[in-house]
Amino acid sequence: MKNNKSKDIKNFLNFEFSSEEEKETFKKSSKTYSEYKEIIELFDNVKPLDYNEEVILEQLDHARLKPSTKKQQVIPLYKKWMPISISATVLLFVSVALFNIKSNLEHHTLAGESVQISLPDASKVWLNAKSNIAYNKAWEKSRAINLKGEAYFEVAKGETFTVKTPQGIVTVLGTKFNVKQRDTSFEVYCYEGTVAVMYKGKETILKANNFFNSKTLDIDMQKSIAAKTKPNWIENVSIFENTPIYDVVSDISIQYDIEFDINSNLNKDLKYTGSYHYDDTLETVLSVFCESLDLEYVKKGKSIYLNKK
């Protein structure tokens, strides 16, 4: 039954009915036509593309015999062409895919890994663990980067520089700033110059040593007490000052490629002050962390289970 349906549809789309009468009979009596009427009728008026084979071959011979320093790739022509609308759709899909492959540059990092990247305009990007950026090769036309994760930027003077994340957009002209985008948070810290942060339709302007945190939208609270020159993770260190426990374990997760399972009996408002170096062993980090908060942990594979002592 399925083979007959496929054959009928194929005949219809490839114009292979012997007569208009046969075609009309198919349209009136075939269950296949009634089931797929909307799709089939999209191609009802499509005709095969006519071409003069002798003219085409003559042009190909002329091109082949013409001297050239480059190798010419000859693409064979076929007598039967697919319907124009189908060909156009496939061509568009392939063209978009090839364009994306050729036009975009991407960088990504694994757990516990960070890299430094130089952009075409001499701007620099430091990419933190489990993060990725993508930007167009035609950098001079648009200085725009798509970011997932965390990155520190030192932007060269020039046209507008934009960092787009799934949660917010950061726009600058020339400055130093850090953007951190994770599943439940979006943070921007300005180290030098001025940064414009667009979050949920509202713009916030940050000056040097001001920061934006999607969890702390009070502008008066978004000011750093101590001036900083770079984020701590650039120096392979994470430092926490009265930081919610969920943000701490999220940070540890991306550096050591593990997942935390926090017991529901733990206080969700629990906060941690401390630090760890990325060269420290996971056991050392967890021991210090748990000792400070009177917790205990159990490690099973790549999962860490946190409980009260």
Score class of each variant (00 low, 15 high):
residue 264 S to G: 00
residue 282 L to M: 11
residue 141 K to D: 12
residue 27 K to I: 14
residue 68 S to R: 06
residue 182 R to Y: 05
residue 128 N to D: 15
residue 88 A to L: 09
residue 20 E to F: 09
residue 41 E to D: 13
residue 1 M to W: 12
residue 267 N to S: 06
residue 123 S to G: 11
residue 135 Y to E: 01
residue 278 Y to K: 07
residue 87 S to M: 08
residue 274 G to Q: 02
residue 199 Y to L: 13
residue 230 K to H: 08
residue 168 G to F: 01
residue 185 S to D: 10
residue 269 D to I: 01
residue 78 Y to N: 14
residue 58 E to H: 15
residue 14 N to E: 10
residue 250 S to A: 10
residue 182 R to A: 05
residue 122 A to R: 12
residue 231 P to W: 01
residue 176 K to W: 09
residue 169 I to H: 01
residue 54 E to C: 08
residue 73 Q to G: 03
residue 275 S to R: 04
residue 178 N to W: 02
residue 274 G to F: 00
residue 267 N to C: 04
residue 200 K to H: 11
residue 102 K to P: 00
residue 119 L to E: 02
residue 134 A to T: 12
residue 241 E to K: 15
residue 216 T to G: 08
residue 244 P to R: 06
residue 7 K to A: 11
residue 56 I to A: 15
residue 79 K to F: 04
residue 25 T to A: 14
residue 210 N to Q: 15
residue 20 E to M: 07
residue 258 I to T: 01
residue 26 F to C: 07
residue 6 S to K: 13
residue 124 K to S: 13
residue 8 D to K: 12
residue 12 F to A: 10
residue 100 N to E: 03
residue 169 I to N: 05
residue 248 V to K: 01
residue 155 V to Y: 00
residue 78 Y to D: 10
residue 151 A to D: 03
residue 2 K to A: 14
residue 224 S to G: 08
residue 150 E to R: 02
residue 142 S to M: 13
residue 52 N to K: 13
residue 18 S to F: 10
residue 257 D to E: 05
residue 6 S to L: 15
residue 145 I to P: 00
residue 24 E to I: 12
residue 131 S to L: 01
residue 35 E to L: 13
residue 264 S to D: 05
residue 226 A to D: 15
residue 185 S to Y: 08
residue 206 L to C: 00
residue 44 D to L: 07
residue 279 D to A: 15
residue 8 D to C: 10
residue 223 K to R: 10
residue 207 K to V: 06
residue 225 I to E: 14
residue 64 R to G: 11
residue 219 I to Y: 11
residue 35 E to S: 13
residue 227 A to M: 04
residue 297 Y to M: 03
residue 211 F to H: 06
residue 159 E to S: 08
residue 127 L to V: 04
residue 300 K to M: 07
residue 56 I to C: 10
residue 50 D to Y: 11
residue 116 Q to C: 09
residue 232 N to I: 03
